[in-house]
Structure formats: C-alpha cells, structure tokens
Design a protein around this nucleic acid. Structure first.
Length: 866
RNA sequence: GCCCCUGUGGCGGAAUUGGUAGACGCGAUGGAUUCAAAAUCCAUUGUCCUUGCGGACGUGCCUGUUCGAGUCAGGCCAGGGGCACCA
C-alpha cells in the first residue's frame, strides 16, 4: 500500500475545486444563504499560525455549510493600509505599495496552498483605489448626514520626526523611534460621531444572541453609560465667574455630605484663575507633565490646589465648599468638575484627609446610627438609608437620587443626565499609507468636500520617506488644487483615514466587490448580515464597535439595510509555544532546540552548540521571543491537511492552543492511518460507494459498525454546529478505530456486511472533509464516491441506529458504584430494581440489610439507599 | 480597586437536564515485527493498598443542598483576561 502523498495530492484537488468553481458564490440561488467570514489579514509578508487556525475554523464551517446545501459566501481580502508599510519603506527604500502588493501575492499563494474554500473572485485590498474611492464617497455621505465633523483635538507630537504618534508609540513620554520628548499639540481633525449612537450601540448588544458574553460585556463597559445629575454651584470669591460651576455626579444623593468642589487642571475656570496666579499656573503645569501610564496613575498622590473661590451649597444656607484644582479630575469626562463627598468615595476621602476637610457620612448602613456612624480609612460605598441629609433623611439611595434630581430641576439649577465614556472617533492620521480624506481647504469656503465625480482622491506615487513628516504634506504638487466651490487656489487635506475605517465596512463590500457604488443594495440585502464572523478577541472592542457604528451610519445613508453586521461572532484563542533561553538568557528558536525526554521529565539543549537550554513559559508566538513556527515549513513537510487537523484537534477553539512538534507528528500519523484505513488493498474487492444496498441480514458486527458510524454522523454534525471542533476530531478518531477493528471480519462477510463497511468509510470520508479536504477527496475517489466530496450532500444519520436496545447501567449502594448490569432499554423500573437487588455483588454490599429506598433513574442508574 | 473567565491524570482535553469521572489524542512503559532502524501493530498507563479477586481515595480548598455533586449554592485560594483617578 502506498503512503498518502500530500505534496502530490493537495495541488491536484485545489486545481479541481477551482476548475469546478466550487467556491464561487452567486446571489441567484434558491438555496438559503450563509455568509462566513474570518477577520481579513494585514499583509505583513507571510501567514502565521494564528492565520492558519483562524482560517481553518472558518473553512470547516464554510465547507460544512456547503455540504448542508447552503449558498455559501466565504471571501478573502487584505487590510492593506497601515504603518508597517511605511516603516518598511523607510528601512528598505521601497515604496509602500510595492512592499504591500508583494506581500499580498506571497500570502495569497500560501492561503491557496492551505486549500481554503475561498471565493477568490471577490478578493479586495483596502489600498486599492477601487476600494477606497467608495470609502471616500461614503465619508462625504456621512458628512452630509451629520455623522462626520471637524474639531480641534490634541495629539502626541514627535518634534524630531515631525509626526503624530499613536498612544502605543509613546513610551515613557518619549517617541518610540526618535526618543524625543513628546508634546501635546492641538490639530484640527475629523471625527465620526459614534457617541451620538452610544445608546443604540449599547441597547442593541442585547440582540446579539450569538456573540460571546465576554465581548458584549467589554463593549458595555467601553461605552460606559452612567446616569447622574448635572448641576450648577454658585461661586463666590475674587474673579468668580457669574455663570457658576457646572459639575456632574452619579451620586447626587450624597450632596449633603459634600465638603469640597474640584476642577480638572485644564478646566476653563482653572485656566482663567491661573492667568493671575503663578502658583496655580505652575501647579497646573506639574499636573499636565505627570505621566498618564497605569503605573504613574497608581503611584500618583491625590494633589489639589486650593483656589480663592468657594461654592455655595444649594440647600444649606451659609455653607460654602472650598474649590480646588485637583490632579485626579479629568476634563474629558462629565463636565470636568465634581463635588467631593469623602464619606462615600475613596478618592474624595483620600483627598479630604490630606487637606483636612470634613467627612460627613450621609448614607447609613443598616444597624448603624446617623449620629454615631463614622468613616475611618475606607469610604462607605454600600447600601443604606440617608441620614444627616435634611429632606432626604430616611430615603434609600435610589429614592434620594430621584428626589434630589427633581428638586434641582425644579430650581432650574440642573438636570438628570446620562453620560458615556465612549467618545467620538478621531479618524485623521498624519500618514501617507492610508485612504486620503476627500476634502479641500479653501481660505474662503472652508473645508469643501471633493465632488463625488472627482473621486477617488488617489495617493500620489512619487513620494519619499527619507525625511521625517508626512510625505503628502511635503509633496511638491499633490496638495495644491483649486477649490471645487470657488475655483480659487486651495489645499488638499493631507491627512489620511485611520485604517480602522477600512475594516469597518469591508464585509459589505465583499457582497458586491465590483459595484460602481460602495454597495449594491440587492447584494448586501441578500448576503448580510454575516452569519458567522470569526477572529481574535483582541478586536472585541475597537474593530467590532466601529463596524457596528459604521453599519448604522451606512444605513442612514442608504448603503445598507440593517443595524447589526455580524449575527454570530466567534473569538478564537491564540497559538502559543514554549519559549527557550540559552545560558546567556538569549531566546532560542524551536528549530534550534533538541528536546530530550526521560520518563515524564524533559530537558533541552542547543542543536548546534549542545549547550543546555532552559525551557520557559508557554507564550503567544512572537518574533521577540523567537517562539514562532512558520506554517510554510509545516506545509512543505507534512502538507496543509496535517496543519489544519492539528489546529482543530485537542484544544477547544476559544482557548489557546499550544503548538508542539509531537502534536504535529501525531496529526501526520493520523493522516496516514486514515488513508491506510480507506486505501488498504484488502478493501479493493469491496463494493463501490455508489453500489445499491444489497438485501439480507447484517451480522452483529456489521450492525454494530453501522450504529457507530451513524452515531458519529450525528455527533460530528452537532459538534461542528456548536463550534466544538476538538470534539468532532475525537469522534473521527473513534470512528476510524471502529472501522479498522471491524474491517478484517466484514471484508469476508456477506454482501450486506461489505456494504456496511463501505458505508462507514464513506461517512468517515465525508465527515473528515471539512477539516482535511484534500485527503478526503483522495479517499472519496478511491472508494468510488460520486463527483467531488465537497459537492456531496452532508450525510444524515438514520434515527433508528442512534438508539440502543440493550444498555449497561450502574448500580450504586449509598451513592457508591458497586456493580453494573446489562438491561433492555426502557425496562420498567420495578424490574430494574428487582434485577439490581438480585446481583451477587449488590447482595454482598447490602449485607442482609433492608434498603430504605431504591432510586431508579430510567436507563441511567440505580441507587440503593440503606 | 472594579468586572469577566478558568482550575479535572505526566500533558491537551472529554463527561446532554446533577446519574458509571478521565472519551479521544499526546507522552511514557512493556512486547511483536526487523540483521538493525524508521514505519507499523498489540498491551498497560489517575493515586495508594493487594500476588490476584478486589478495596480505599480522587475533578484547586472549605462548607452546604441532594439518594447521588466535576456539574447547583455560599465562602476562600490560585491563574488568566478586560477596564481603570470615569465622579
């Protein structure tokens, strides 16, 4: 028998699928549609194991749904804009486009070699003008419909590189590349008003039934809705603004426990006071200079500067609260000002202790008395009843909140309001390799949209990266254009879009990738929503929230007809690997490590030097720790099916999977074992899979095999539906073992027995096809299956074969298992009880006592209680 | 600090609604085959006691509910993830 040759087989079947157009999706179908999508890759150069895992999962689903008779859309594209291309351009002196498209070509070839069931005719790349011109058109629609606007915002500015840095590029307050101290700079930038839709985005999370709860929770927290009160305090003192001070609080019930007010350092009133107060000015400067990293915040002391102003308490005549400028108040949240109630907020308490302010409890826990309850080092944030609070006394917290809000509203001093942490999405990037923002700035007309007929605004090709700054800005001619409105000389916007915009609507473009408009309504109405979206949990917030917002904005502009783009979401785990370090602490790549096993102990040495190597933690594959394994090497050595199978085995898809050499070898062994199970020459005399079922009686073993294989059909179908690929794999191992065990006898049996064996082989081949499609095609051909296995209808189990008429149940005495017995299924309880009590071992265990109670759970268990 | 998730053999992990814990795979050990190896096949493999039959213990820890708990409840511990001076 010949070994299975993946190298020969895989390209052959890939060609066959292409030739038959197996994966091309068409809208005109009477089959139900199914849109399966994996998050599209950034074209970094070559695929990594994370891609293999992600796309293997999506592929199982796509092929399974295809076999189930669905009209499947399973497209692929490239999230092709972004900084790495510019960095590569600087380092290698190539153009970002050259680098990107070369990467795309390389990665496309690799994905094709993996044999994924992708409709390549729908391929898109976000850096293609044919893609981004529609993005520009939609931005203009958003602008017209009030979803986009322009405002001043501060950015991280690297004065050496003359560029804006993302927060992640600022390390210890310095630019990651230049090392220069980063400045805050105000730039006029474009924003999308995602916060206008905060309520919808929050409420509709409840409709996402097939999303992981974890992601829903994370988005809920990110949107951060809170209900509270905005109210104005009257200010007194030198230079007090007569409009007063507007604060925001979620605990209006604690107003009678207020002992100070505090402003953010960049609050307008603080700024104004600082103009005539050098001490305050330097305090504010110190606040702004302090770091914003987690660690800094953790360590930072609560600092305040007591201004000359005081705030009048609205209900306590003569009570005035000192007004501080404090370093822990954020201008971006609420109104940038608070009243502090130290008894019931830890930060306020820390602050009050430091500055000797009053701490008056106003929420009294059950069992305490308002007159004697006191606060020590910990603020009391629990439940209770109001005390020391005039007209609120005796109310619970919720009642007190609504009462005080009503009073303040009636006084015209404020109103109950809702605040969100979610802020508008700044989309301007001072970068070359992104989608140009289709705007012209005219001295007279302001920001003028580029007319749609003039789109796309294309990136110029002749740019250089040898000097810092934005190449679009210093390009000699590109930005100089005439105003579309008044024809006077004007300047193009030289910013490009955040690349998250590119990925916020690509799933819609896949429905009609060649349409002359951003979407073809009949196509998106047919295909959307995406039935199953699959990707890494690292996109749980930004990408998925942006895409949800974008879908709503597109709907408002008539590009799409629904609110939620992704009906089902699955977030898969990472691929991880052991790390290795040599004696000097340098990381060693897995390829350079030799592992020695003795018993259950493992040790490692360097493959060339022979020196000992320490086996370290199992971590996400990363270049810096050198614990990566290149999928290409695996494909070359074992073939795509082995890599796919390993990725789907063992670990549940949502958890991390550890890549191990032994595991891959195990997968490879199984590929061969499966092939030899099917292609054993001894089987050659068996009837073809097409042969009709002969008459006669099955022998016991053949009957058993039929039961096993039909049960496998049911179990594997359920497992795939539930995204339990590891369990589907386990069932396939079992079915294969059953076939191997039964084959020698059944081969020599009756025609019907032989047919049953062949049937089981056919099932196994079909069931394995979504995971190892090439191997399956080879086997399918070998056993005489009709056409391609990918085109075969998914098998269905005969219900009669799924139930057993004889079962084994356990017998317990006092909850401990003492024996088991074979009984007929659905045997009446009293008979089961009688038979259980008659068992020798049970009699022994009972020891002559009379059972107090006998519990019979039909077809499951008997428990005898003494 | 707040929120969420996860703890099962040497390892990855199975175990419908509470009903025989450890399926399946990896690793390991012994054997067959072989001149030898690779490959393949067979057997054993939770721990402890026992020559064997068998028995005791066992799903992070402690309590509880139940005839019966990996599964349910309460309280801890450990690991991972997310958010965070958000008023």
């Amino acid at each position: 028998m010949t070994r299975y040759n993946a190298k020969e087989s895989e390209p052959k079947w890939q060609a066959a699928w292409t030739e038959h157009g197996c994966f091309e999706a068409h809208e005109n179908s009477d089959r139900p549609k199914y849109y399966v999508l994996e998050m599209f890759p950034y074209p970094s150069g070559k695929i990594h194991m994370g891609h293999v895992r992600n796309y293997a999962m999506g592929d199982v689903l796509a092929r399974y749904k295809l076999a189930q008779g669905y009209n499947v859309l399973h497209p692929m594209g490239w999230d092709a804009f972004g900084m790495p291309a510019e960095n590569a351009a600087m380092e290698r002196n190539t153009h970002p486009a050259t680098w990107t498209y070369a990467n795309i070509d390389a990665m496309r070839a690799q994905l094709k070699a993996m044999g994924f069931a992708i409709d390549w005719s729908r391929e898109i790349a976000t850096c293609d003008p044919d893609y981004y011109r529609h993005e520009q058109a939609m931005f203009l629609d958003f602008l017209e419909n009030g979803y986009a606007y322009r405002k001043e915002a501060s950015v991280n500015w690297d004065p050496v590189d003359q560029t804006v840095l993302a927060n992640e590029q600022v390390i210890d307050g310095k630019g990651w590349r230049s090392g220069a101290v980063v400045e805050k700079r105000k730039l006029s930038q474009w924003f999308l008003s995602i916060s206008d839709l905060a309520d919808d985005l929050l409420n509709d999370l409840a409709t996402l039934k097939r999303w992981p709860e974890k992601v829903v929770t994370m988005q809920t927290n990110w949107i951060g809705r809170s209900e509270g009160l905005s109210m104005t305090f009257e200010l007194v003192g030198d230079g007090a603004p007569k409009q007063g001070l507007e604060i925001y609080t979620t605990r209006p019930d604690t107003l009678f426990g207020a002992s100070f007010c505090a402003l953010a350092p960049d609050h307008p009133i603080a700024q104004q006071l600082a103009q005539h107060n050098p001490d305050l000015e330097s305090f504010i400067r110190a606040c702004q200079a302090s770091g914003t990293s987690e660690e800094d915040i953790e360590k930072a002391e609560k600092l305040g500067y007591r201004t000359s102003l005081t705030a009048k308490h609205p209900f306590i005549a003569g009570k005035e609260l000192p007004v501080f400028v404090a370093n822990f108040i954020l201008m971006e949240y609420g109104t940038g000002a608070i009243f502090g109630c130290p008894a019931h907020d830890q930060r306020d308490l820390d602050f009050a202790r430091k500055y000797g302010l009053e701490v008056l409890p106003v929420v009294i826990p059950a069992g305490e008395d308002a007159a004697t309850f006191s606060i020590d080092d910990d603020a009391y944030t629990g439940d209770g009843v109001l005390g020391n609070s005039h007209f609120l006394d005796g109310l619970d917290i919720e009642a007190a909140k609504s009462t005080i809000i009503k009073r303040i509203e009636d006084m015209g001093r404020g109103q109950g309001t809702v605040h969100f942490k979610l802020r508008d999405w700044g989309v301007s990037r001072q970068r070359y390799w992104g989608c140009p923002i289709p705007i012209v700035h005219c001295d007279d007309c302001g920001a003028v949209p580029v007319p749609k007929k003039d789109l796309p605004v294309k990136l110029p090709k002749d740019v250089t990266f040898d000097t810092p700054g934005n190449p679009l800005d210093r390009h000699p001619t590109w930005k100089h254009v005439d105003c579309p409105r008044c024809n006077k000389a004007a300047q193009r916007e030289t910013d490009t879009f955040d690349t998250f915009i590119d990925s916020s609507w690509y799933f819609a473009r896949f429905c009609s990738p060649k349409a002359e408009t951003p979407t073809d309504r009949s196509a998106v109405d047919y295909w959307l929503p995406v039935d199953q979206y699959i990707g890494g949990v690292e996109h749980a917030i930004l990408h998925l929230l942006y895409a949800r917002f974008y879908t709503r904005a597109m709907k408002a502009c008539n590009h799409i007809g629904l609110d939620e783009p992704f009906d089902g979401l699955f977030t898969q785990g990472m691929v991880i690997h052991e790390t290795y370090q040599d004696e000097d602490g340098a990381w060693v790549a897995p390829d350079d490590v030799r592992i020695t096993v003795s018993g259950n102990d493992r040790s490692a040495s360097h493959i060339t030097t022979g020196k000992p190597v320490t086996i370290g933690a199992i971590e996400k594959m990363s270049k810096s720790k050198k614990n990566t394994v290149d999928p290409q090497g695996i494909i070359d050595q074992y073939g795509a099916d082995t890599a796919r199978w390993f990725m789907l085995s063992d670990s549940p898809p949502e958890r991390d999977v550890e890549w191990t050499e032994a595991g891959v070898e195990g997968a490879w062994r199984f590929v061969q074992r499966f092939w030899s199970t099917i292609a054993d020459p001894e089987n050659d005399a068996l009837p073809s899979l097409n042969a009709s079922k002969p008459e006669g009686e099955l022998n016991a073993q053949a009957n058993d095999l039929r039961k096993r294989s039909h049960k496998a059909v049911a179990a594997i179908t359920d497992a795939i539906e539930a995204f339990h690929f590891n369990r589907a794999v386990a069932h396939l191992y079992e079915l294969t073992n059953s076939i191997r065990k039964a084959a020698p006898q059944l081969r020599g049996g009756s025609d019907l027995d032989q047919w049953a064996l062949r049937e089981a082989m056919g099932f196994a081949t079909q069931l394995i096809a979504p995971m190892m499609p090439h191997l399956a095609e080879q086997c399918w051909q070998h056993i005489g299956g009709e056409g391609l296995v990918i085109q075969a209808k998914w098998p269905e189990a005969e219900p009669a074969l799924l139930t057993e008429d004889a079962i084994t149940i356990a017998i317990q005495v006092n909850g401990k298992r003492r024996d088991e017995m074979d009984i007929a299924k659905d045997l009446p309880n009293d008979e089961v009880e009688a038979r259980a009590l008659a068992q020798d071992r049970i009699q022994e265990a009972i020891g002559g006592k009379t059972p107090r109670k006998v519990i019979v759970v039909p077809n499951r268990i008997v428990n005898i209680v003494l």
